[in-house]
């Protein structure tokens, strides 16, 4: 009763058994999340805004960033060249998306058996298996990718097996090739999918699978209707963790796929580096980001329609 009469009390909220005024709550939340917000603003949002502005500017004769404002950079990416339609940049974007999607598929295919295998191990071996999965990450990606060059080299064990099986010419390396690229990508991104998926498998409610079986579902349908739906959140987390960086990846396709193919990543690097065309590089970076964000948005909308909750 007294609380209703007292306007100061009416505005307070109880948090963990404490009664806080609005000001006190604001002070607390800015103390806890303030540093993070500051960090992200200073080192992510601000530079990103800068890149956004630069993407609408013009390259000077010696690589300076100059006025006037233009949408020419974006037109160039969309394929409007000086000499009519130029498919170079649409192709690069498509190729990168394809690499991202392909890597995601390969990682998914490998993660399912791996996640179930590890989850089925006794507790001590689980730890060992998870450690083994992580160990390659103690080594730099560049070094790991060079290591694949050795493992796939002309006299390597793998090359000999392949030639014995008639899959490759004897005495020749297994790279550059699409196979080598995806092997390298799998090696680079597997844990990002396998670990979230493994966590989801560990948390599986098997009684739901038993219920499905009890209600007449054979093994395949038990998986489809009772197990897979429980794994979807873990799968989506892993897919996002793999797809986004894999789309921007260029070291692996460069070293294992031959240096001929330009991806989003090295296209951006090219513009900021040798070509000294920062406005164009910024535009490519923004387009890449936009494509991924649109994809995530669509995913989260469909998830929201399905489950009543999304990621974004």
């Amino acid at each position: 009763m007294a609380g209703e009469a007292n306007p100061r009390l009416a505005r307070t909220e109880v948090r963990f058994g404490e009664r806080l005024t609005a000001q006190a709550e604001l002070l607390r939340s800015s103390l806890t999340s303030g540093p993070g917000i500051l960090w992200v603003s200073l080192f992510l949002l601000l530079p990103l805004a800068g890149i956004g502005v630069i993407s609408f500017l013009t390259r000077g004769t010696y690589g300076e960033i100059e006025l006037p404002f233009t949408i020419g950079n974006y037109r160039r990416i969309a394929g409007f060249g000086l000499l009519g339609f130029d498919a170079q940049y649409p192709q690069i974007i498509l190729r990168s998306l394809l690499l991202g999607a392909g890597t995601t598929v390969v990682c998914l295919a490998a993660s399912f058996p791996l996640a179930f295998f590890i989850a089925g191990q006794p507790e001590r071996r689980k730890q060992l298996a998870l450690t083994l999965l992580i160990i390659p990450f103690w080594t730099n990606l560049l070094i790991r990718t060079y290591a694949w060059q050795i493992l796939l080299g002309p006299d390597s064990f793998l090359a000999r097996v392949a030639s014995t099986l008639g899959l490759a010419e004897a005495g020749r390396p297994l790279y550059p090739s699409v196979f080598a690229v995806y092997l390298g990508m799998l090696c680079a991104y597997l844990p990002f999918l396998a670990l979230p998926l493994y966590t989801a498998v560990e948390k599986l409610d098997w009684s739901i699978a038993e219920a499905a079986s009890d209600l007449g579902a054979d093994k395949l349908r038990v998986f489809r209707h009772a197990i897979l739906p429980q794994l979807v959140p873990g799968m989506i987390a892993g897919i996002i963790l793999v797809f986004i960086p894999a789309t921007g990846q260029f070291v692996v396709p460069d070293l294992l796929g031959g240096a001929k193919t330009v991806m989003l990543g090295n296209a951006i690097q090219q513009q900021f580096g040798p070509s000294r065309d920062w406005p164009f590089g910024s535009a490519i970076a923004f387009v890449g980001m936009a494509v991924v964000l649109v994809g995530l948005y669509l995913q989260s909308r469909s998830a929201a329609a399905r489950e009543g909750e999304g990621l974004l």
């Binding site: 007449g216 739906p229 979807v232």
Partner: peptide, 18 residues
């Protein structure tokens, strides 16, 4: 199990959450 003429009501209900 999936071909037996019996059905079960589970202790935890085990309803399909999705």
């Amino acid at each position: 199990a999936h071909r037996r003429p019996v059905n079960t009501v589970f202790q935890s209900y085990a309803l399909f959450p999705h």
